[in-house]
Design a protein around this nucleic acid. Sequence first.
DNA 1: TAGCACC
DNA 2: GGTGCTAAGTCAACG
DNA 3: CGTTGA
Length: 311
Amino acid sequence: MKKTATEEAVVVRVGDHEVRLTHLDKVYWPEDGYTKRDLIEYYHSVSQYLLPHLKDRPLSLVRFPGGVSSDGFYQKDAPQGMPEWVRIAPVMSKEKEDYINFILCDTVSTLVWMANGGAIEINPWLSRYTNLDYPDFAVFDIDPSEGSTWEDVKIVVKMVKSLLDQWNLLGFPKVSGATGVHVYVPVEPRYTYKEIQAFVKYGAQFIRDAYPEKVTLERKVKDRFGKVYIDFPQNARGQTIGSVYGVRATRGAPVSMPIHWDELDTVTPQAWNITTALSRLERTGDLFLPVISTKQNIDPVLKAALAGQHN
DNA sequence: TAGCACC
DNA sequence: GGTGCTAAGTCAACG
DNA sequence: CGTTGA
Ligand SMILES: [Mn+2]
Ligand SMILES: [Mn+2]
């Protein structure tokens, strides 16, 4: 007799709730042999590190119920029929006269439920539901374009570091799990998205002007060839960036992992994956904890940005 | 990334 | 045609 | 139409 989905399903207690898990042996990463079970076990295992970073943040999920070689889809609006204990954040849509019920992941139960739905990639907002218009960090998203290299990325990241040093600001780097690096600059949650983006753009312009041969701010992809793109427009309401400790739906199942600044020369952007991240985390602890606790004042830089009127 | 309004 | 902005499951079957 | 599963 053919197995039904019901027969494959298993109900487990995760945190405070029971979660129904299905198709655990579904191969999600064919080239690596990793299954949905591996994904769920990963997210479950790092939940104590990950959850504080997701708390109160509206999420865009990228779901791959057929695994990473099938098309995935973004999901913002919470699906009907989800467990009643999944918290949501209604946010008025810009285009339609209706709310989008963003999923909030504040418990391990919800995290595991999302993973069971094939939510490989987790993309949180830069602001929290409790303070939606005021991000609590700015991000320097450093992306190599075709024709540029990881070596180029490292140079640009170091330039970001020295610029932040000049400004007496703390930044926290992580490898993206794809090809680049994200540098988070935690701020007091009282700057608008426009201000946060102006801040990052101002810094990015300095870096481009210092090294125009290898750094670009061009929005058109074809104009970025051979250069490293500093993706400052990513700092905008409704935009998201792959979560720290989030998984990528690409070969190897890489995860986004914080690093120490002095590790930059010894790591690669996909240095960790769902099978190796936990031991790293247990050794280093959560290097991104200060991103939550640090609240920096960027008034001086913002003032200079507005006065300077770079282009 | 795709669709759409607007220039 | 280029630019800026926004959203982001779908479908079929069942009762 | 609400629910469920692929
Ligand atoms: Mn990036
Ligand atoms: Mn980017």
